[in-house]
């Protein structure tokens, strides 16, 4: 726990647009236990960043683990990370391995 998985990638998404522009599915107690990116909207910050991809699984957001979090909790955490004015970016630790 807390160790980087070998296939993981840290992606820094600058808040370059008014929305983050991703859709996620999954969370604890579902078929997809970690949140997975299912859509990246054109024109959103994630799309502008160019490094997030559909199908990637989100392991951490700003260093906070997604493990054990139910869908709404994971979604809320990501929304708050985008909304806060403390940072001008959101750091995602993602993996292509599901």
């Amino acid at each position: 726990p807390g160790l980087l998985e070998p296939t993981s990638t840290l992606v820094r998404v600058a808040k370059s647009a008014s929305t983050l522009g991703i859709a996620i599915e999954g969370g604890a107690n579902t078929r997809q236990p970690l949140p997975r990116i299912v859509t990246i909207q054109r024109g959103g910050s994630a799309h502008n960043c160019g490094q997030l991809k559909v199908g990637q699984v989100i392991l951490e957001v700003n260093g906070v683990s997604m493990r054990g979090r139910e869908h709404r909790d994971a979604a809320r955490l990501i929304a708050e990370a985008f909304k806060t004015k403390e940072r001008d970016h959101v750091d995602f630790l993602v993996t292509d391995f599901n």
């Binding site: 999954g26 579902t30 078929r31 859509t39 869908h71 979604a75 990501i78």
Partner: peptide, 15 residues
């Protein structure tokens, strides 16, 4: 007896 082989699907949230 009912077997639970799969977990339910998740909702999708746009962020």
């Amino acid at each position: 007896r009912e077997k639970r082989l799969t977990l339910p699907p998740s909702e999708i949230t746009l962020l």
